[in-house]
C-alpha cells in the first residue's frame, strides 16, 4: 500500500482552474519530486495535501486514511525555513510536538536524538540568527521531520541556498532520508535538484497544471555521488527539458 496518495485532485480560484485531476503516490522511504514551471500549481497541490486548502474535487490518503482538509497529518516545509527568530533552535524544532500537547522536556528528549544526525549538535540553545543558511535549513527539516508521520512535503527547501551549500545539502539529505527511512514529496523547479534527489519525478505542465509524465531516475539513490556528471543524468535532464519546453 502507498504511504501517501492523492486521487483526482482539482482546484480553482475565482473560476480559474489551477490544477486538474492530479493523482500522485508516494511509497514508504521514497523521494518523489513534483517538477514544474512557475505558476503550474505546485504549491496549491502541496497546500491541499497538507490540509491547509480543501480541493474542489479529489481526495488525499495517508496510509489509506482519508486526510483531505485535515491539517497536522503531513508535515510541510515551505520555501523559507520559517524558523521563529524569538525561539532557540531546540524550541523551534520541538514546536510541532509542543503544539500537539507534548511537554517541553519530553519533546526536547525526543528531538535530542536527532541533533547529531541532522548536523546540529551544539546548536540547541542558539537562536536562528546565529546559524548559517545550511544549518537553518537543517533545523527546519528536523522540525518538519519531528512533525511528520514519516512523510514530509518540501516546497523548494533549498532554493535560497548558494550552489555549494545546496550540493552539500542534497548529499546530506539523501543520507539522512536513507538512515531514518523518510518519505519525501519534494516540490522544485530545479531540474538538476529533482534528478539528484528523487526516485521518481512527476512533471506538472500546462494551464491548469496536469501530470502527464512520470519519469523514473535511472540510478539507485545510494549511487548518486557525482551523478550529475554521468551520461544517464544528462540524458534524463534532456528528456525532462524537452517535455517542459513542449
Amino acid at each position: 500500500m502507498e504511504l501517501l496518495e492523492t486521487s483526482g485532485i482539482s482546484k480553482s480560484y475565482d473560476s480559474r482552474e489551477v490544477i486538474r485531476d492530479i493523482s500522485v503516490r508516494l511509497a514508504e522511504g521514497e523521494i518523489v519530486s513534483l517538477l514544474g514551471l512557475s505558476g503550474s500549481g505546485k504549491t496549491t497541490l502541496l497546500n491541499i495535501i497538507s490540509g491547509l486548502v480543501r480541493p474542489d474535487a479529489g481526495k488525499v490518503f495517508l496510509s489509506g486514511t482519508d486526510i483531505t482538509g485535515r491539517p497536522g497529518q503531513v508535515s510541510y516545509m515551505l520555501q523559507k525555513d520559517l524558523l521563529l527568530e524569538h525561539k532557540r533552535v531546540m524550541d523551534n524544532v520541538t514546536l510541532p510536538l509542543v503544539i500537539r500537547g507534548m511537554k517541553k522536556e519530553e519533546a526536547a528528549k525526543q528531538a535530542n536524538v536527532y541533533f547529531e544526525q541532522f548536523g546540529l549538535a551544539g546548536t540547541e540553545k542558539m537562536y536562528p540568527a546565529q546559524l548559517s543558511g545550511g544549518m537553518r535549513q537543517r533545523a527546519a527539516l528536523l522540525r518538519t521531520y519531528l512533525a511528520s508521520h514519516g512523510v514530509v512535503l518540501l516546497d523548494e527547501p533549498f532554493s535560497a541556498l548558494d550552489m555549494i551549500t545546496k550540493g552539500q545539502m542534497h548529499r546530506w539529505y539523501l543520507e539522512v532520508a536513507r538512515k531514518i527511512g523518510l518519505s519525501t514529496l519534494l516540490i522544485t523547479h530545479d531540474v538538476d535538484e529533482a534528478i539528484m534527489l528523487s526516485d521518481r519525478i512527476y512533471l506538472l505542465t500546462g494551464t491548469p497544471g496536469e501530470i502527464r509524465h512520470e519519469i523514473r531516475v535511472p540510478a539507485n539513490r545510494d549511487d548518486r555521488k557525482d551523478f550529475d556528471l554521468k551520461p544517464e543524468f544528462l540524458k534524463c535532464k534532456q528528456e525532462i527539458r524537452e517535455i517542459l519546453r513542449a
Binding site: S50, G51, L52, R70, P71, G72, S75, Y76, L78, K80, L82, L84, L95, P96, I99, R100, A147
Partner: peptide
Amino acid sequence: ADPDAVALLKSMNA
C-alpha cells in the same frame, strides 16, 4: 506577523 509562519502553524493544526 509573517503569514507564512501562521500558515506553517496552521499546517501543524495549531
